[in-house]
């Protein structure tokens, strides 16, 4: 199995990348880390004559701490995300997702933009990005626009991006005080795993009480895309955090929010059951952080 021949382009600006893409027509593919694309090319799942690397474009590999939010460039690697102080301090669920992806070698190459554009229902960073209310930043020949991540995924491998779009990065609002978040992935082995189910939860509590002010839950591998769990979230709003509340939310997520299927990695029934367990556990951990 050989990598097929293609022409390799390395533009140094977004403008040049957009121009190239337009010039080469729809056949060209953007490349970030390449850990998905090169495998697809080798296995002939994808074919193209032109690959446009985004790696030389200034700023796409950076993380910036803005006043009210964190910018993560689309070409930031999993390894870089996992060791960035702002991520460690404010976005621990994202760190867990980045840490759990693939192996060391993969994490040194794979990018968060690639993980999102690959749009696998099992993507490791996607539940965390969803519960942190991430917004995708997109540039096209028509200008810049923003897509909330909740609107970004359209199906397995399918996104809201148009052919001429480049995903440049994400904006993650800083979580308010008294909030916490947690991510758990469940697979057959302890690392280098493709998730059977993964889940992230985010909670903000009223200071000094256990009243839940806001709650977000995201689930992976239990629908055609990673999803939020709106029914379960609604079941948490305004309630007092605790085992009973979390159990009720977990049951809601399990029976109302997800629509898993059977495949060779796991059965729908098991996935559904695990949605309950992981929802409960991520909520409990998020609450512990919110309270701390």
């Amino acid at each position: 199995m050989l990598l097929p021949k293609f022409e390799f382009h390395e533009p140094e600006s977004i403008e040049k990348a957009l121009a190239l893409k337009k010039q080469l027509n729809s056949g060209a593919r953007f490349l970030a880390g390449g850990t998905d694309l090169l495998v697809y090319l080798k296995k002939k799942i994808v074919s193209t004559d032109h690959v446009i690397s985004l790696q030389r474009i200034d700023g796409l590999g950076e993380i910036q701490e803005n006043e009210s939010n964190l910018f993560i460039g689309a070409c930031t690697t999993m390894a870089a995300i996992s060791r960035h102080p702002a991520v460690l301090k404010r976005f621990c669920a994202l760190k867990s997702g980045a840490d759990n992806m693939g192996t060391h070698l993969i994490r040194n190459r794979a990018t968060i933009g690639g993980n999102v554009c690959n749009a696998s229902p099992a993507g490791d960073t996607l539940p965390a990005l969803l519960v942190y209310d991430a917004v995708a930043l997109v540039e096209s020949p028509d200008g810049k626009r923003e897509i909330p991540l909740t609107d970004f995924f359209k199906g397995p491998g399918k996104t809201d991006l148009k052919n001429d779009d480049i995903l440049t990065g994400f904006r993650l609002p800083y979580p308010p005080d008294h909030s916490g978040a947690h991510y758990i992935q469940l697979g057959k082995r302890k690392s280098a795993e493709i998730n059977v189910v993964n889940a992230a939860s985010f909670l903000t509590c009223e200071p000094g009480t256990s009243n839940i002010l806001s709650a977000r839950i995201a689930l992976g591998s239990v629908a055609p895309t990673p999803i939020r769990a709106p029914e379960a979230e609604a079941a948490l709003m305004g309630r007092t955090a605790g085992d009973d509340t979390f159990n009720a939310a977990a049951e809601t997520a399990r029976f109302k929010d997800c629509s898993p299927i059977d495949d060779f990695r796991g059965s729908a029934a098991y996935r559904r059951a695990m949605v309950g367990v992981l929802t409960k556990r991520t909520l409990a951990e998020a609450f512990d952080q919110a309270r701390a």
Partner: peptide, 16 residues
Amino acid sequence: VLNDDLAEYKIVTTMD
């Protein structure tokens, strides 16, 4: 074979 690579055929990692 559906899982003909070492991503999907799951041998023991150091973590296991």
